[in-house]
Structure formats: structure tokens, C-alpha cells
């Protein structure tokens, strides 16, 4: 019997799809299972236990790194989102002009330049600045995270703006709203889901960063990912499984919350 053509009926399609799901979720499932393992070896299941979660949460170094990550990520995500919102407005709320595509490419630079290159470049500059100013605080990491988070915040905000009818803002101006009122009463409320998505994305990307942070952090400035990397270099402990599982749980909750919130908005 002839069936209407559909990619679903392509030979091998199901197999490829299953492979993708396997590679994505099997490792994660394994990790989660081992996080609840009572034994201390990675590779042999010895019954259910919350032991590694307790150990991880009692580890001062982990808590310190986690708190540092949770300091950097919201600040960097906030500044990145503000910058991205302004950039998105500037590239959508006008008639297209010459050089606009170039501007967008400049904003998206961190997506295209290999991260390791940026990391080396920042290391070179920041080590100089450290010598000149004597400042060795978290500012460097926050500045770097802000810069590379901008395109991640920019993409959803711009996507949202492109679907928004420019005549709404014209109509508001026609109804006696000054530019700031137009922004506050029309643009911002309608753009809010995009801004929230941009912030979330920037937050997660900052929280997760290893390469740039590893290069530019000063002594004793471990974030959670760089701490984990440092630990893994010595030996793999089930403690890492527990932290990663917590990490996973938090991101699933954050993303689901955001999804529910944005659906309610529209």
C-alpha cells in the first residue's frame, strides 16, 4: 500500500533517532544511578544510598565553589541580558541599514571564535591588568562571562522581537506615549518571555563554563565546574556523580519552570 511520503518512513530513520536518544540519555541515566550507589567504586552497584550526596554537601570546597558559581552566573547573566536586549532592539526596531549584518556578526563573535582562543587572549590581557591594578577579585571572571554570554541572551530576545509587530509601538506613540513609556508599557511586557529565555540561557552557559574560567581564574577562585575538573584529574569519586546529578536536577527544574512561566504569558 502506498503511503504518503514522510521522513518517518525513511529506511533507517527510526534507528538513527534511537541512537541519538541513546547517546544523549544513557550516559546521564548511568551517572544518576551511580550517584545513588552505596559502594565507593565507580563501576559496581552495591545498593541504594544517599551517602555521596551527604559527603558532597559536607565538603566545604564544593560548597565554596558552588556559591562562587552562583555569584558569578546571575551577575554575568544580568549584564549580558541587558546588553543583549539593547543590541536586539538596535538591530530590529529600525529599518534595515547598511552594516547591520556585520554588527550582528560582531555581537555573535563568541559563538564563532573557538573558546580556547578567547581564553588565551583574555589570559594575556587580564594578567597585564592584574599587574597594573593589583585587583585579583571575581571581576575578571564576571567580565569574561558577561562578554561570551551576550550572544546566548541575544538570540532568543532577537527572535522574539522579530515576531513582534512594529506597528504596536507606532500605535502607542500615536496614543501620546513618549519613547520611554512606549518601551515600558508595550515593548518590554511583550518582550519579557524573550528576555527571560535569554537570561536563563546566559545563566546556564555561565554556570557551565570551564575553558575560559580555568584560564583566567586567580588562585583559590574555583567555580563548581573547574573544581570538578580538578578533582577528576586526581581520581574519579562517586561524589562527582552526586554533584552532577544535583546540577542536572537544578537545570531540569529551572528550564521546566521557565517553560511553564513563558507558556502562561502567551
Amino acid at each position: 500500500m502506498a503511503r504518503p511520503h514522510s521522513v518517518r518512513h525513511q529506511r533507517g530513520f527510526t534507528f538513527i533517532a534511537l541512537m541519538c536518544f541513546f547517546l544523549l540519555y544513557l550516559p546521564m541515566a548511568t551517572m544518576v544511578v551511580f550517584a545513588f550507589n552505596a559502594g565507593s567504586t565507580v563501576g559496581q552497584l552495591d545498593g541504594f544510598s544517599l551517602r555521596w550526596f551527604r559527603t558532597a554537601l559536607a565538603n566545604d570546597q564544593i560548597i565554596e565553589a558552588l556559591l562562587r558559581s552562583l555569584t558569578i552566573a546571575p551577575i554575568a547573566a544580568f549584564f549580558a541580558t541587558v546588553a543583549a536586549t539593547m543590541a536586539a532592539l538596535a538591530t530590529t526596531r529600525t529599518a534595515p541599514y547598511r552594516g547591520m549584518a556585520l554588527k550582528v556578526a560582531f555581537i555573535n563573535q563568541p559563538l564563532m571564535v573557538p573558546e580556547i582562543v578567547t581564553a588565551v587572549a583574555l589570559l594575556v590581557v587580564f594578567s597585564r591588568v592584574k599587574v597594573w591594578t593589583g585587583y585579583t577579585g571575581l571581576g575578571y571572571i564576571i567580565a569574561a562571562h558577561t562578554a561570551f554570554c551576550i550572544p546566548f541572551a541575544f538570540l532568543p530576545i532577537r527572535a522574539r522581537l522579530e515576531t513582534m509587530d512594529l506597528s504596536l509601538e507606532t500605535a502607542a506613540a500615536d496614543l501620546y506615549a513618549r519613547p520611554w513609556s512606549v518601551f515600558r508599557r508595550i515593548t518590554l511586557p511583550l518582550l519579557w518571555p524573550g528576555i527571560l529565555a535569554g537570561f536563563m540561557l546566559a545563566f546556564v552557559v555561565s554556570l557551565d563554563d570551564v575553558v575560559i574560567t580555568e584560564f583566567i581564574k586567580s588562585a583559590g577562585q574555583e567555580t563548581l565546574p573547574t573544581y570538578m575538573l580538578g578533582q577528576l584529574r586526581r581520581n574519579v569519586t562517586p561524589e562527582m556523580n552526586a554533584i552532577s546529578t544535583l546540577f542536572l536536577a537544578v537545570s531540569v527544574i529551572v528550564v521546566s519552570l521557565f517553560f511553564l512561566l513563558s507558556r502562561k504569558k502567551t
Partner: peptide, 20 residues
């Protein structure tokens, strides 16, 4: 004069009602 300073109002082709 900018539009917000003119005592003139417009009905738009696509209405441009504020959806929120």
C-alpha cells in the same frame, strides 16, 4: 512634531491592538 505631541489619532490597517 513627534506623533505623541499631535492631537491626531490613527486606526491602523492591522488594528495594532495591544495583545497584553
Amino acid at each position: 512634531m513627534p506623533p505623541f505631541a499631535r492631537p491626531v489619532n490613527t486606526v491602523f490597517q492591522n488594528y495594532a491592538l495591544f495583545p497584553h
